[in-house]
Simulated scan of single mutants.
Amino acid sequence: MARARDDVRQALRRQVADRAEALWEVALRLHADPEYAFAEHRAAALLTSELERAGFAVERGVAGLPTAFTARSGAGGPVVALLLEYDALPGLGHACGHNLIAAAGLGAALALRAVPETAGAGTVLAVGTPAEEGGGGKAVEVEAGVFDDVDAALMFHPGVYDWARAPLTAQVQYRVAFHGRAAHPTGNPTEGVDALAALVELFNVLAALGRRLPEASHVQGIVTHGGTATNIVPEYAEGLFGLRAATTRALQELTDRLRACAEGVALATGTTTEVERATVRYEHFQDSEPLSERFAAHLAHSGIALTPPAPGVYLGSSDIGNVSTRLPAIHPFVAIMGADGSDHTPEFAAAAASSRAREVLLAATQALACTAADVLLEPGLRRAAWARHRAEAAA
């Protein structure tokens, strides 16, 4: 049985290798034509056409999102989902390497359909997930039921580290507004209630709070409206605040503290306040260790060794967190440039079309295909992944 499983993995690697040039061409086409949140029309068309040509049943516009899609091969359970990201960063293009994520998910899905043992073992679901950089396509898809009945969600992310799992925090943005009363600052100063002064005081209170927050928690704000003229006491002021925390529960606690701070400042300054969520909430990432260990083992076949992330280092947030808190999921990082670099930079955008990126794409696609095959063919692995997932959720 083990030998037969090895034969399946070898067949999947060959399928990916045979498609290496075509997958790299997809990655380069996406890289050369960056599109942004919920407007990735050409990217979605390219990917769905490739999947449809291979025999996948494609559904476009899923979850009410014009550039989201699912592509299904096979029937019944188990079900393994491969996640394709393809949005870019305004002004920077593919400086997060989503062109590689999309090509890898595409290649793994095509390989799985082409190998009889995996094509007939259940359902392969390629999920097009727009707007990871802002808008949270995966979060919307989760709520719409796209991942209902899925046994595992798999993707990789290019980066500057070779890490088996992603230390991704929960994050959300809130708009905080203060309402006061306009007046002339010299003609009738006592009639004014300064909304901007209230907003500034909120920044002061949050700065003091920040010194007592736990690791990975912080609040960062900007002023989005501070008045209209220097000779008018501002009757309205508004700030936008980004909140992050190590877990979704901690983020909720931080949100409650932001609201309490705003209400306290309003009471002290005689203003009124509104605190409203401004973005989709990204939940923290919950790694499926049984699955991420399999991915790491398969990636090692290509000579890339993954390690645990460095303690105390966090790499931002992603809507993969919303998927991972519902079902077993992986989001390993594989380096396409040195650790002295950073994503969301012009240098990383260049790296996403480099010869190293091409090598990583081939290796990661093969590892994704083999990990997906393990999910489809090994009931014990699925049970272990779900048991770990439920234990994490209950902790």
Rank of each mutant, 00 (worst) to 15 (best):
D33I: 00
T272C: 02
T67F: 03
V62H: 04
L291E: 12
E143K: 15
L243D: 04
V160L: 02
M337T: 15
G74R: 06
V140P: 00
G55I: 15
E40I: 10
D151P: 08
G93A: 01
A387M: 10
G61N: 13
P34R: 09
G97V: 04
H31K: 02
A329D: 10
R72S: 09
F348R: 08
P214W: 05
F38D: 01
A385L: 06
Q366Y: 01
A297L: 03
L106F: 02
R13H: 12
V79P: 04
E347Q: 15
I330F: 06
V205P: 03
H98V: 03
E359G: 12
R249Q: 15
E143H: 10
A139P: 00
L168G: 07
T70Y: 02
L110Q: 11
H98I: 01
P34L: 08
R181S: 12
T255R: 12
H389P: 06
A166D: 04
S302H: 14
S342N: 12
L377D: 06
E117D: 09
A37F: 00
F285T: 13
E21H: 10
E143Q: 15
R175L: 11
E359L: 12
G159S: 12
A395V: 15
A103E: 03
E347I: 03
V140Q: 14
E276Q: 13
A216F: 13
E215A: 15
S317G: 04
R14H: 06
S73M: 07
I222K: 05
S49W: 02
D319K: 10
R113I: 02
R277E: 15
F56I: 15
C96W: 02
Y314S: 11
A300W: 00
A237D: 09
G270T: 13
V313L: 14
T67V: 10
E85Y: 08
L202Y: 00
W24D: 11
T325M: 12
V233M: 05
T247M: 08
A144Q: 09
N204Q: 14
V313H: 08
L23V: 07
